[in-house]
Amino acid sequence: MTSRPTIGVFALQGDVREHVAALERLGATAITVRRPSELAQCDGLVLPGGESTTMFKLARTFELFEPIVDRIRSGMPTFGTCAGMIMLADRVKDGTRDQETFGGLDVTVRRNAFGRQVDSFEGDLSLAGLADPVHAVFIRAPWIEQAGESVEVLASVEVAGADRIVAVRQGHLLATAFHPEVGDDDRVHGLFVDLVTQ
């Protein structure tokens, strides 16, 4: 792997620009991915925040769905934030009837688990692998209800007395329920760039 990896940001919908900016600040070459030919150039892929129903529908229509599933299965490092975490999950609760995900991450995610827009919140969060807490922004965020044995839990938040998983890693896959791309703290993206370059 070269020292300057090419990392794609899935760009059919969502906060693409923020991810591109974070990746470029970290020295990666960031490209937007809307077509299979663009996916083919990527050493790693970011699935941004947005609406997972829209992302799924457009990925199917524009023939990006199967190529992404194949790349994830064959080991391409992939990082999903919020809706992107939903797209990486093997199982989704409270999705729409026909909603599918790319999968790969052995977890069950609950969509909009923290509630509606007014229930969005931010706070400092300890994340395994980072020395200092990250400022985490949760917007209509999902959480992970169940994680398989091979999934490493990186962060949780307490909701009504129960710990809810909000950041995980499983081999080449990284996912957060919050939005590390919002703001100027690039350390979580740094973990992902390390996954791509190692």
Binding site: A11, L12, Q13, G14, D15, V16, R17, E18, G49, G50, E51, T54, C82, A83, Q117, S120, I139, R140, H179, V182
Partner: peptide, 9 residues
């Protein structure tokens, strides 16, 4: 907040 709607209708 509204960043997640970008690129959408």
């Amino acid at each position: 907040m509204a960043e997640m709607l970008k690129g959408g209708v």
